[in-house]
Measured scan of single mutants.
Amino acid sequence: TYTWNTKEEAKQAFKELLKEKRVPSNASWEQAMKMIINDPRYSALAKLSEKKQAFNAYKVQTE
């Protein structure tokens, strides 16, 4: 089980997950979700809006 003390740690864990699963920077949210949804870190960020925000930040960083 994973635990995160801060929102920032949770966001980092979520981005690490995207990186580890090699989600391409041109992937849509739907494509990315299919690649990461079974990992416990997918739940790091509770709100869908937070997940999408972190995903978009990840995409910008990896382009």
Rank of each mutant, 00 (worst) to 15 (best):
A44T: 04
A46D: 12
T1W: 08
P40D: 07
L17Y: 01
E50L: 04
Q12P: 00
M35D: 05
A13D: 05
K11T: 15
T62A: 13
M33F: 05
A44R: 04
K19S: 13
A32L: 02
K19H: 14
W4D: 10
K47C: 14
K52N: 03
K51D: 02
W29N: 00
A54M: 08
I37A: 11
E50P: 01
P40A: 08
E9F: 03
N38Y: 09
R22I: 06
T3P: 15
K15Y: 15
L45Q: 01
A10M: 07
Q53H: 10
A10H: 03
Q12V: 09
A54N: 03
E9L: 05
Y58E: 03
M35S: 05
Q61E: 14
A57K: 11
V23W: 01
Y58R: 01
S49T: 08
E63G: 11
K15A: 15
K47S: 13
T6R: 01
A27D: 02
L45E: 01
S43L: 15
T6F: 04
A27S: 09
V60I: 14
A32E: 00
M33H: 08
V60R: 15
P24A: 07
L17H: 00
L18H: 00
T3M: 08
Y42N: 02
V23F: 03
A13K: 05
T6K: 03
K47N: 10
N38A: 14
A27V: 09
Q61W: 14
K52P: 00
K52W: 06
E8Y: 07
V60T: 13
L18S: 00
T62M: 14
V60F: 14
N56M: 12
T6A: 03
P40H: 09
K21A: 08
Y42P: 00
K7T: 09
M35Y: 08
S49R: 13
K47F: 09
K52Q: 09
P24Y: 03
M33L: 09
E16F: 06
Q61A: 13
T6N: 08
E20Y: 06
E63R: 10
W4H: 06
L48G: 05
R41V: 03
K51L: 06
T62Y: 12
R22P: 02
L17R: 00
A46E: 14
I36A: 02
K19I: 15
A27W: 07
S49H: 12
T1I: 15
M35K: 05
A44W: 04
